[in-house]
Write a protein that binds this DNA or RNA. Sequence first.
DNA 1: CACGAGACCTGTTCGC
DNA 2: TGCGAACAGGTCTCGT
Length: 269
Amino acid sequence: MPELPEVETITNRLRVQVLNASIRDCDVRWRKSVATPNADQFIHQIKDQRILSLSRRGKFILFQLTYDVLLIHLRMSGDLLVDPETNSIDKHDQIIFTLDTGQVIKFNDTRKFGRVWLTDDPESVVGKLGPEPFSEAFTPAIFFDALHGKHRQIKPLLLDQSFLAGLGNIYTDESLFDAGISPRTISADINAPTSERLHASIRKVLLKGIENNGASIDWVYKGGGFQNHFRVYQRTGQPCLNCGTPIQKTVIGQRGTHYCPNCQPFPGG
DNA sequence: CACGAGACCTGTTCGC
DNA sequence: TGCGAACAGGTCTCGT
């Protein structure tokens, strides 16, 4: 599920709900959800730490606690839900944090791919991430240079979190469509004007996602509306909203990839 | 360095 | 209707 807009939405929601609360207790029901330290140490160490601030880096949610930073990555099916008090526990609630306010934060994760870290050195977890798409450091010129520093298909490159942080399968397909670039285009072959267009499209599409509180698909992640604005994602066979050509789906880098063969021609055919 | 396959997991949808 | 295959918002590791 969660890409940058969904994680941003969840982080902002959490900030309103649990900022300044202290973690009184923690129940780990799927031990592998804890990446580091081991589950027992994690539970012991997080107790009585207070949530001083919340932020997002790429697809990670960061809780600045009294002594450590709690980092959470939701991967494919994770979500963070806040209950006003201890209620029903879902079978997919993998970690449950009880707060001194009586509230409960539930890390719900059907597929169990999500992970949490507790460390005083968050750089050890997020240090290899590429730039934030909305940071001032992510300029069109830097993006162009980065594209030419690689010789890879543009779609898998944009999904590479060490290249650029935050894009996932939905927003990559939507960005490439918006910029009119074939997902198979080799990064080093993208010229300056096209690179600048892609840079703008990435920000535009992510912003639209954030404005719609992310995308809700199937049973995973509730509350988003960006799925109503998809132009290629999950529109296989439907007419392109620009030219009417049926949207195609293929596999690139082992990921389902949606595109308009007319609006996103591969250079040279 | 770039890329594909296989893992990690569960649930839903598709095809015969 | 039933059942297995295919597929799903992500990322890591290994082999070529």
